[in-house]
Nucleic acid binder design. Structure first.
Lengths: 152, 152
DNA sequence: TTCCTTCAGGAGTTTTTTGTCCGAATTATA
DNA sequence: TATAATTCGGACAAAAAACTCCTGAAGGAA
């Protein structure tokens, strides 16, 4: 309804990494398994997050990915601007190239406050807090894998 | 950010048809030109809206598409359930198959009220009202075509 | 050094979405 | 009846998104 798969994977992975001990690199393979997501695809996404400065990567034994120092306070909006592109917040719901208060589509004034709520929400959610929420055990980062179901 | 191109075209076309005299079929070609949208693709979408009972179609001379009787009160939610599929309202923002108050993803309780606002908004917007808004001339249904710009 | 493990990066494949083309069916009108 | 205008429906094509595979480079440890 709102986010591309790429964005979903990116957010899930970042939250997961944020739940792990800082300074201890997490393997792409482990993240993929934990989130039940294609590993090779996830690797591309993590690579891109590295280039954009959210993650640090290390090769070889004891390698993996860490949140870059200070990036625990990263907001989901910052992530989405990378994964969905810089126009994420600007788009008209009907797809018009130009749609503003002056040149509005018929949905504009109803959509605008809702869109602002989405933006505020994304600006308000930080990796750190989401990670803590997951650590309480009350929230799920991924669907239960088939392996976790009771044996038949 | 939220809707597929197909949904956008469908909504635009339905609003446009709703602005036209009822009972006077509107040509696919004219709608496409007015909205600046690929005609052959739009035709498929209109066909589908016919099958789902929102439109009536007429072939041959004086043919075209009309809103089916009574369908002026159709809500955007009804349209979106056709174009985006029946799970439109149900999806988890992180893509989890199961995500409810009991089995929540870490974004669930922040996202839920926002999603409900979107749903309420879509349930509240009717073709008739949107068409009237467009008829006032204050709102645009499509970007200005290059042809409408002042000659160079 | 040598081996093993991990990420880097490029090329390629598959799937989905978006868009095109064309012939057939239908209908008003000359 | 013949013609022109329109939708219908299926097959096809292109573009974008999601996903895979392979080779190479880097780093740690025996």
């Amino acid at each position: 309804m709102v986010l591309s798969r790429t964005s979903q994977y990116a957010i899930q992975a970042l939250i997961y990494i944020a739940t792990q001990a800082p300074g201890e690199p997490v393997l792409n393979r482990d993240i993929a398994e934990r989130l039940n997501v294609p590993a090779a695809y996830l690797a591309k996404i993590l690579q891109s997050l590295c280039k954009h400065g959210l993650l640090d990567s290390f090769r070889g034994r004891l390698g993996g990915f860490c949140l870059r120092e200070g990036m625990h306070r990263t907001t989901l909006m910052q992530v989405l601007l990378l994964t969905e592109g810089p126009d994420f917040t600007k788009s008209c719901i009907l797809g018009l190239k130009e749609c503003s208060d002056e040149t509005a589509c018929p949905m504009h004034f109803k959509w605008k406050p809702v869109k602002n709520k989405i933006i505020a929400m994304m600006n308000d959610m930080h990796l750190e807090d989401l990670a803590k929420a997951v650590q309480t055990g009350k929230y799920r980062l991924a669907d239960l894998p088939a392996a976790a179901l009771p044996a038949a």
